[in-house]
């Protein structure tokens, strides 16, 4: 279980980017975080694996606090938390399978990781995961040759091989066409159930959030204005969230 308590962050003095963010998520749950640009969604997500050092609060993964972890402990937490990026953040020059295997680095000794010495089981698992995301044929292709949707699926496979408890997705479909967007969202939803993991995705598309997520968290100016089941998201709340009528987007 992931519990976030009273998370605070300001980049500049007296201009809080996050105020008192509190929520918890059970395994097997797909959570969408929605809200206008600059609301603080990326800041929340990156605090969860401490890529951003927040200013206060607690982040508990199965009871252990990430925020007070030392370097080694943090590395231990990070490998249980996969991350999927808007721009995929793959090493484009390397092959698909090498990029997937990067998800194992957190488990390896420094030397073995530096020189990319992976075990047979790790390679086997990478192939199994590539099959799962429908890219087994592409294992030896360079990532630069893939389409956006395919790259994102490599990114997802890279996070899965970490055996994560949590996957964080920052605008995972913002660079994709509608069809690939749905493929990726469906994949994330299925994997969440299959592996019983927590998936948290920042999304701009409210329609897709309602369709695929179990829970929705609404953020506005660094504050949580909504944290309910996806079905409970009403026009009323969306209005306060975005300060304007966004219902057209739902159709």
């Amino acid at each position: 279980m992931l519990e976030v308590k009273h998370l605070e962050k300001s980049y500049q003095k007296d201009k809080p980017a996050l105020t008192d963010i509190t929520f918890s998520v059970d395994p097997g749950t797909f959570v969408a975080i929605i809200g206008p640009s600059g609301a603080g969604k990326t800041t929340i997500l990156r605090s969860l694996n401490q890529l951003i050092k927040d200013d206060g609060g607690q982040i508990l993964l199965d009871g252990g606090d990430l925020r007070t972890a030392n370097k080694t402990q943090l590395r231990g937490y990070r490998r249980q938390i996969g991350m999927v990026f808007q721009n995929y953040n793959l090493v484009e020059r390397l092959t698909v399978i090498e990029n997937v295997l990067h998800g194992r680095l957190g488990y390896k000794s420094t030397l073995a990781g530096m020189f990319g010495r992976y075990t047979e089981e790790e390679k086997q698992e990478a192939m199994t995961l590539l099959e799962k995301v429908g890219l087994e044929e592409f294992a030896l292709r360079r990532c630069s040759e893939l389409s956006g949707g395919q790259k994102q699926r490599v990114g997802i496979a890279r996070s899965l091989i970490q055996h994560p408890k949590v996957i964080l997705c920052d605008e995972p479909i913002a660079s994709l066409d509608p069809a690939s967007s749905r493929t990726v969202m469906q994949l994330l939803k299925d994997l969440t159930t299959e592996f019983n993991i927590i998936c948290i995705a920042n999304l701009h598309q409210i329609g897709l959030a309602k369709d695929y997520a179990d829970k929705i968290i609404g953020i506005r100016q660094g504050k949580m204005v909504f944290n309910e089941d996806a079905d409970a998201l009403s026009e009323e709340i969306l209005k306060t969230l975005y300060d304007q009528n966004v219902t057209e987007e739902l159709d």
Binding site: N49, R75, Y77, G113
Partner: peptide
């Protein structure tokens, strides 16, 4: 950033 997030160490990254 992506590799740092997987828990990879500095030299691995």
């Amino acid at each position: 950033l992506a590799l740092k997030a997987t828990g990879a160490s500095y030299f691995q990254v």
